[in-house]
Design a binder for these strands. Structure first.
Lengths: 384, 384
DNA sequence: TTTACTTAGTTTAGCCACTGTACAAACTAA
DNA sequence: TTAGTTTGTACAGTGGCTAAACTAAGTAAA
């Protein structure tokens, strides 16, 4: 049991420092040199770590540098969006090997699940050969997911109670499969591979048709008691505001989501195109004032909710992700201004607000990391 | 290190089960009988555990029952309120031995600190003799406190940057002293000794002059990056609402706190008394409709914020505490109705909203528990 | 070169705290 | 009584750690 913990510590240290000697690991972790040596040799036998040759001497014998073998295996990450499926293959370090995207507009769950299985098949076949092969699959879904991987409610997909994990498991019986909310996966993605690498507390705000949040506190996802935390889109920001389909009034997502944009757009004369987010972005880029104003209004309302979240959580970082992050150019300034006006001074001084750095891959990368994490945990524990 | 962990596990098991045999501990924890025996004998030497005699046989030798020695030492818990100081002495099980209260209306920090020291002295002298004596002091403060025990900002006391821990430490140099926000302490109190014993995620909402929240997630207080989490009072619930002194508009505490009551009270004809919370409660008890209406309005607005918190955290339990809990009778129904209307169905099904069960002792008890917790941790670890 | 000094990594002996097994003590029930 | 249970202790064995010695491989200055 102690060995398990120490193996994890050594593994994490190697991954974090990218290239490191046994002696440095011993220094950093406080573990004895002998202990480190023996643990490392087991990791090498497991193909999880390899020696890259001699490093720079600092006045004595040259160290043998160690690296994490990111290509010991591969994982699949899936971002099941409202109208697309993005499937990626990454190695254990989150390097994207290949990706595959398909539209799912108008499809129901009976049609989407086979499509997911097909996508997994296509992507799997492109994995380079490796000691462990494909070691897991992660899936981010735009809805509430329970601990068993059942999608309880995904309004924008029209799903209720779809046992997604079991459905995929039918085709890949031995494969570890992780299903979670798209915002949680996005938060994990940003924490591991994006802007959140150095912070312990971050909130990833997924602004798409609605708004959801992935909450990472003390370096771990906080899912709440039933797994339904982060329903920030239905936070009241206007007590006497418009009625939301959830039954509440003045929900944040009525004022600051893609749906809000569409509502505003009805009164905007577009240059002939349909009112998709992409068309609005295109119009804004052409300088259409009414569209830019709409974005700025949404940025302002985003700021109100972001300030609330800052006041409640006192996080290191708030990241705006998902579809509306594409309009960063017009959202950013009004958002920041509103936060500066509305959040408590001590909060806005210590917390940063940024837009996703992984473009549209946050969720898929987070999903793939779930699988990586589980694989490494299993690998370092079973080396008994 | 393993021993430390196991000692803690044994200790926790004894505390939880109140009266238990070595054999049962071994069963429950999975530790070997011999291991449990040796750890228990050390705890007995330390006076932390004692044998209470034979228990009921279940067909064989009678077990020797063990109990946690709650009277191995005592701790002091202080609730520094806006206009009172409540000091309590408890044993290690949170049993209140004696208490002492003083008014501090109109006093500044230079006057309050000596008063705190005096109160500690008065209470200390009443502690029964015990193996360890007074083992720690906890203080809950109505303001932001950093990790060093400095009160950064306590608007209702008029304090900025008062190094409270250091000031008390001057008089009790070797004593462990814990200073934290009053809402965090209240949350801890409810978690340990009140309504939250069985739950992992609870939010304690302290409704006094303003509103603050103590957040317990996965059985631990979440304090945020700088220690400033839980500033829920400044959550916007009305985007275009009234201006708050914090600079924001439509802050929750403008509509749902003692301050809100006072504001409303200006237009209420009271029966000759001044507008304190107590006088409003008295009027409501006499059946004065306008006061009851005011309470109901506050209950409604409390519900809006509570629904927000439910949607964001998906907790097991939300507890309403501090001064306004005294008006439970009139707040409760409108609060629950609003939550039922506004929180997502799945949230309100799984989370309960209750009023504090420890009457006005939540904060002081939480403060005392901080000291208990630190003492037990130290005791079980230094038995090397 | 040679020599002295560093630093890296392995080996070995010893130790700590756990587990498993055996056993004594103390009880119940037939 | 006698057989069978349950509790708690004793003791040997083991896993995994640390400390220290040692080998290996370098640098720097005489």
């Amino acid at each position: 049991m102690v060995k398990e913990i120490n193996t994890s510590i050594v593994m994490d240290t190697i991954i974090r420092y990218h290239s490191i000697s046994r002696a440095r690991i011993s220094e950093i972790t406080g573990l004895n040199k002998g202990t480190v040596s023996s643990l490392v040799s087991e990791l090498i036998i497991q193909h999880l770590v390899f020696e890259t040759g001699a490093g720079e001497s600092s006045g004595g014998r040259k160290p043998v540098m160690l690296q994490f073998n990111g290509d010991a295996g591969y994982v699949i990450g899936i971002d099941l969006g409202v109208n697309y499926v993005l499937t990626i293959l990454t190695n254990l370090q989150g390097m994207i090997i290949c990706e595959h995207q398909e539209d799912i507009i108008g499809l129901n769950s009976q049609e989407i699940i086979p499509l997911l299985v097909r996508s997994i098949g296509i992507i799997s076949s492109q994995a380079p050969s490796s000691p462990y092969g494909i070691v897991g699959i992660g899936i981010g879904v735009p809805g509430m997911v329970n601990a068993e991987g059942t999608v309880l409610f995904a309004p924008n997909l029209g799903w209720t109670h779809v046992d997604l994990r079991a459905a995929i498991q039918l085709n890949y019986s031995e494969m570890p499969i992780f299903v979670d909310n798209e915002a949680n996966m996005g938060a994990i993605g940003e924490k591991q591979y994006g802007l959140g690498k150095e912070v312990a507390n971050l909130i990833y705000i997924s602004v798409g048709v609605g708004i959801g949040a992935g909450i990472i506190l003390r370096n771990e996802v906080f899912r709440g008691t039933g797994g339904y935390s982060g329903e920030t889109g239905h936070m009241t920001i206007d007590a006497n505001g418009r009625l939301c389909r959830c039954g509440n009034r003045g929900c944040w997502e009525l004022y600051a989501s893609e749906q809000a944009l569409t509502d505003m757009g009805k009164s905007i004369q577009l240059d002939g195109t349909i009112g998709t987010l992409e068309s609005y972005v295109a119009s804004a880029e052409k300088g259409q004032g009414s569209v830019i104003e709409a974005f700025e209004k949404i940025g302002h309302y985003l700021g109100i909710g972001v300030a609330n979240i800052m006041n409640i959580f006192n996080p290191d970082l708030i990241i705006i992700g998902n579809r509306l992050a594409k309009a960063e150019r017009w959202l950013s300034r009004p958002l920041q201004e509103t936060v500066d006006q509305r959040a408590l001074p001590i909060q806005r001084q210590s917390a940063a607000v940024q837009f996703s750095s992984l473009s549209s891959h946050s969720t898929a990368l987070g999903a793939s990391f779930m699988a990586v994490s589980a694989f490494l945990q299993k690998s370092t524990s079973r080396s008994l």
